[in-house]
């Protein structure tokens, strides 16, 4: 029984890591007022870039770097369209999703059925890894998990307590007022979008280089859309995003543990989206609207 629980929790963390990375990136982007629905596409591009580069170079580190860059480049596209040309953010994001999924399928075609020569191995942290149970669970994961947790906590601190973080939030809330204070609105939005894309690329790298070890088309399988839901679920707070990511990862894993008990997996698969709706509803019913809400200028192009 203990073994079953430990293995389930371990799988939960593995399944949640890509969601964590993607959500942290999307929170950063949306906090600056840019809605990027292209997460699915950016994750796919990150995954395919990471996979191809790892196969070609035989070095998984280059693969991760390539994924980061691929996600970033995809986000640059979105940034140019939405920030400098002021195109509709929803449309541009959706287009990016479709482009990313299609392009990764085409680019990945010659690699179908290829095995990764090396993968992102799980690392046992010294000392911490020896703690019974907890060590095995949390300190025996692949490097992207550690990076993801650090990035999430770091983003939370950054957005909340640093000057740059406050500027990002102010740009997302009221770009006009920020600009009158001398904040470069467009540049900040652009940087946040690219940063968020790079995080999504990392999420894709986790899917292709750690969670799976061979290339199959559609490897990301809708995780990007869950990330978009999770960002709302977390109410744009990276720490809550972290809890959400592992909660959603857990639901995904538990589907199959609970199946023999006669609980239909479709019902469980629906839970993340149901949970997002409940959170939105609760948020809407709250009287104090100041701390928890979407960035006021989210989705609105800004022009002087």
């Amino acid at each position: 029984m203990v073994e079953l629980v430990v293995s389930t929790l371990h799988r939960t963390i593995m399944a949640g890591t890509s969601l964590l990375l993607g959500t942290t990136g999307e929170i950063l982007t949306e906090r600056s007022g840019i809605l990027n629905l292209g997460v699915e596409g950016m994750m796919n591009l990150g995954a395919v870039a990471g996979f191809i580069v790892t196969v070609r170079t035989g070095n998984v580190l280059w693969g991760v770097v390539a994924a980061l860059i691929a996600g970033g480049i995809a986000a640059i596209l979105h940034g140019i369209f939405t920030i400098y040309v002021k195109a509709n953010q929803t449309v541009s994001g959706l287009a990016l999703s479709m482009l990313g999924v299609g392009l990764s399928g085409v680019l990945g075609k010659p690699y179908i059925g290829h095995q990764l020569p090396v993968r992102l191995e799980q690392i046992e942290l010294p000392l911490l890894g020896r703690i019974p149970l907890l060590g095995e669970l949390v300190f025996h994961q692949d490097p992207l998990f550690y990076i993801g947790v650090l990035l999430a906590i770091g983003s939370w601190f950054f957005l909340r307590y640093t000057r740059a973080g406050i500027r990002i939030r102010s740009v997302g809330e009221n770009p006009k007022a920020s600009e009158s204070q001398g904040v470069p609105v467009q540049r900040i939005r652009f940087l946040c979008t690219v940063g968020g894309g790079a995080f999504a690329g990392l999420a894709g790298a986790h899917v292709a280089l750690s969670y799976s070890t061979s290339w199959t088309e559609g490897i990301v399988a809708g995780r990007g859309w869950i990330v978009v839901g999770l960002t709302i679920f977390s109410l744009w707070d990276p720490l809550r995003g972290m809890i959400g990511a592992f909660l959603f990862g857990g639901i995904f894993v538990t589907q199959y543990i609970l199946q023999p008990l006669g609980i239909p997996p479709n019902l469980l698969a629906m839970l993340p989206y149901g949970a997002t709706l409940v959170v939105l509803l609760m948020d809407g019913l709250r009287k104090d609207k100041r701390s928890l809400h979407a960035p006021a200028a989210l989705g609105e192009p800004y022009s002087r």
Binding site: R11, A15, Y211
Partner: peptide, 16 residues
Amino acid sequence: YDPAKAKEAAQSLVAA
């Protein structure tokens, strides 16, 4: 065709 679901289903069988 859903590699992630198949993976978790297989893991849950091993766990069982």
